[in-house]
Design a protein around this nucleic acid. Structure first.
Length: 384
DNA sequence: AAAGCACGCAACCGCCGTCAA
DNA sequence: CTTGACGGCGGTTGCGTGCTT
């Protein structure tokens, strides 16, 4: 098949857009919608290829784009999501209203990546470079677990994307406030297609939040129950996330508690050998996750810990050295402490804990806000 | 003042998946 | 089933700008 050469046509302009070109493109889309991008340039009187027009619109001219400096909140979200999703900018962008994937990508490459690098953290793995999780202290397994969480989340994303596609066929999804990177023009509905619902892909973040809350709650009488979580944490209970997938069965996400308090709707774990994995709550989309896992990867491949082809776990339960907890703690500190806005000193490698370690309230606010971001999904993510 | 350099960002490139004919 | 059009996405490039020497 001969690839379309639309952008290599002789005579088509390339390079920076002029204000006149922007005006033409804007006026045309406001009047007619973008319709077919290929046909648009000729109709709009532009000497550009359709792809160039689409990019200009998507990344710059869309009226629902916020430009300018990223807020601390946004930085935190990007780092957090990048740790989970990697370079899946479009997926990350769906959780940052009014930001484009391109903008996020640029910001990551020019700011955040360097910042983490300066901190001695590998920006790709989000792990400390100097073998922070070296063998013998239990951290290496935690790092592996983090990777597995990301893998699992990635699988979930794929499943959700499939769900979104399927739902678009049968169920109109009015979401006027959703501003994903792939969002089409909202100025006209003549030819535009409503953007897909935001992926419901932050279940793991909620699980993480459970870890952080449990850390914060240790030694504190404050109830740190998330206002948005449907999980009920007993007072002072050590709640740590567990993510399990039974091979050829269903995916589950739940929390282990040290007092075996189960919520309604949970199912008893089959993996209760340690008296710590008491309760699991079934994911609503387990079938889709399973389908995706079955079709895209071998469970054994992503679960070196599966000893009996029956289940694999991500996370650690009731372990005072809780490796996931350490990861989260470190990440949380990075997120909260290391902003260009007011924490430059901490970037220079100074003692993070001195300046930030005690700021639990701020950390909690971060997780609260991130969770709120998740819960603000217009699709009403049916998680947990 | 001017040359060199580093940085940030808009835009491009090429690959891939989806869908209709 | 094949083909081609189309749009989405992530990686990369190159230009403009500001800073340093």
């Amino acid at each position: 098949m001969v690839k379309s050469q639309c952008c290599e046509k002789v005579g088509l302009k390339k390079g920076p857009w002029t204000p006149e070109e922007d005006q033409k493109l804007l006026a045309y889309i406001e009047e007619h919608g973008h319709g077919s991008w290929r046909a648009l340039p000729a109709r709009a009187g532009l000497q550009r290829c359709g792809k160039s027009c689409r990019l200009r619109w998507t990344n710059y001219l869309r009226p629902d784009i916020k430009r300018g400096k990223f807020s601390l909140q946004e930085e935190q979200t990007i780092i957090q999501l990048h740790a989970l999703l990697g370079n899946r900018w479009s997926a990350i962008a769906t959780h940052l209203p009014k930001r484009t994937d391109n903008e996020i990508k640029n910001y990551w490459n020019t700011h955040l990546k360097k910042r983490l690098d300066k901190m001695g953290i590998d920006p790709m793995t989000h792990k400390p470079k100097a073998d922070f999780f070296g063998s013998g202290n239990g951290h290496s397994k935690g790092a592996a677990n983090l990777n597995h969480m990301a893998q699992w989340e990635s699988a979930r994303l794929e499943a959700e994307a499939r769900l979104v596609r399927e739902s678009k066929v049968t169920i109109p999804s009015p979401s006027p406030n959703r501003l994903g990177s792939t969002g089409s023009a909202q100025v006209s509905n003549k030819t535009s297609v409503a953007p897909p619902p935001r992926p419901q892909c932050l279940d793991v973040l909620k699980a993480w939040q459970g870890v952080v809350f449990s850390m914060f709650s240790a030694g504190s009488s404050d109830s740190l129950e998330s206002p948005t979580s449907t999980l009920n944490f007993s007072e002072n209970a050590l709640a740590l996330p567990l993510i399990g997938v039974q091979k050829n069965s269903t995916a589950t996400v739940g929390f282990a508690t040290n007092n075996a308090t189960c919520n309604e709707g949970t199912i008893a774990s089959e993996f209760n050998s340690g008296n710590q994995f008491e309760c699991f709550e079934k994911l609503n989309e387990t079938a889709q996750v399973k389908q995706n896992l079955d079709s895209s990867m071998e469970l054994d491949e992503i679960n070196p810990y599966a000893s009996d082809n029956n289940a694999w776990f991500v996370g650690s339960a009731a372990n005072e050295n809780a490796p996931m907890g350490n990861i989260i703690e470190g990440l949380s500190e990075i997120l909260v402490c290391n902003s260009d806005q007011d924490h430059n000193a901490s970037f220079a490698g100074e003692n993070i804990n001195d300046s930030c370690g005690g700021n639990l309230e701020e950390n909690r606010n971060y997780w609260d806000s991130l969770l709120n971001l998740v819960d603000a999904s217009p699709t009403g993510s049916p998680v947990f």
